[in-house]
């Protein structure tokens, strides 16, 4: 049995469903991220797990225990909020000690555990400051220490990085991931940032319109998105209409604008849609003919827009020091059969 089980979770506000039937499980020590655009229901799901939002229906169980009758303050869950939600009138130490105080931990033990937690997030030097005397990154570390010091069964991170600047965000992602691994705590991260979700989590669940569209390890979800929404949301992709010519188990022969290609997956009917990642497309001697429309330099890569019979395709090629293809050049586009995935709407 999984450590956290969410079954058939539904939350309606009036008649509109914010969460519309969500099922997933998280193993002990696992890091799951809930990824999706704003309004997809990911935060509502998280707050239902925390107990601050009462679900319309569905079951949430932690370690086999149904949470329906358990109040938020009895669930033993650590939360890092988007705004960090530090207590402005308490020092860093008092903030971190608050949860231990609620648990009636003896003063000496409390001081030790607070000191350990602050050391873990490298804030020992700031123990007597007030939140507004700290930078954004430091405030976030206080929030993390405060959530971890109570040794929660579950750590919930609600868009914890979105109020930090870009550079700090990159650092904190790595740092939070390291800490999570070190203390081996079951964690759920809610984010709208796909890089963050892929980088930090063991598994990613992509949500849209109150449902989980796709769930799996980051590279699998990225490579085999399953639906047009997921493939578009998780990075950039090319969606191409194709006709089905022949099928064999797990493989299809297709025609794209008259050019025959192979793809991975199953499909019914005569027509289907393919998803091909821009970085998997190469320029070659054969394949789909096209014309370079524009070429943008992105540092590590060149981004081409290529007009073809099947529509405009985006191609990413690594920068190897040479000159790029000129605008207007005639090219052929090719990709490995394993890079072309059938997607559903």
């Amino acid at each position: 049995m999984a450590f956290l089980e969410v079954q058939g979770l539904v939350k309606h506000y009036g008649s509109t469903p914010a969460v519309d039937g969500v099922d997933f499980t998280v193993e002990r020590g696992e890091f799951l991220s809930l990824l999706g655009p704003s309004g997809c229901g990911k935060s509502t799901t998280l707050m239902a797990i925390a107990g601050f939002i009462e679900p319309t229906s569905g079951r949430i169980a932690i370690d086999g225990r149904d949470m329906a009758a358990v109040k938020p303050n009895r669930r033993n869950i650590g939360i890092v909020f988007q705004s960090f939600a530090l207590f402005p009138h308490m020092t860093v130490t008092e903030n971190v000690a608050f949860g231990l105080e609620m648990r009636r931990v003896a003063a000496a033990d409390r001081a030790n555990r607070v000191a350990d937690a602050l050391q873990l997030v490298r804030l020992d030097a700031f123990a007597d400051r007030y939140p507004k005397q700290l930078s954004g990154g430091q405030q976030q570390r206080v929030a993390l220490a405060r959530a971890l010091v109570i040794r929660p069964d579950l750590l919930l991170l609600d868009e914890p990085m979105s109020s930090l600047d870009a550079k700090l965000r990159d650092e904190m992602r790595v740092e939070i991931r390291d800490i999570q691994r070190r203390v081996a705590i079951t964690t759920i991260l809610v984010t709208h940032d796909q890089t963050e979700a892929l980088l930090m989590a063991d598994r990613v669940a992509v949500m849209d319109r109150g449902r989980i569209q796709c769930i799996g390890p980051p590279h699998e979800v990225y490579e085999k998105p399953g639906s047009a929404f997921v493939s578009n949301f998780l990075g950039r992709t090319n969606l191409i209409a194709a006709e089905i010519i022949a099928r064999s188990p797990g493989r299809l022969r297709l025609a794209v604008a008259g050019v025959e290609i192979e793809a991975v997956g199953e499909a019914t009917g005569e027509r289907t849609t393919l998803s091909i990642r821009p970085e998997r497309v190469a320029f070659g001697e054969q394949g789909l003919p096209g014309r370079v429309e524009s070429c943008l330099f992105m540092g590590g890569q060149w981004m081409y827009r290529v007009a073809t019979q099947a529509g405009e395709l985006v191609v990413l090629r690594p920068n190897e020091g040479g000159a790029p293809l000129a605008t207007g050049a005639s090219v052929h586009l090719a990709w490995p059969a394993a890079a072309a995935h059938i997607v559903h709407d």
Binding site: F52, Q82, L86, P88, F98, I150
Partner: peptide, 27 residues
């Protein structure tokens, strides 16, 4: 006042009354 501050206190184990007395009221 950021509502999440109250939620944070709740998630740390404070009862409604404690949340009010220790967090909401001072703020």
């Amino acid at each position: 006042m950021d509502r999440h501050v109250e939620w944070a206190a709740g998630s740390l184990g404070a009862s409604d009354l404690t949340v009010f007395r220790r967090v909401t009221l001072p703020i």
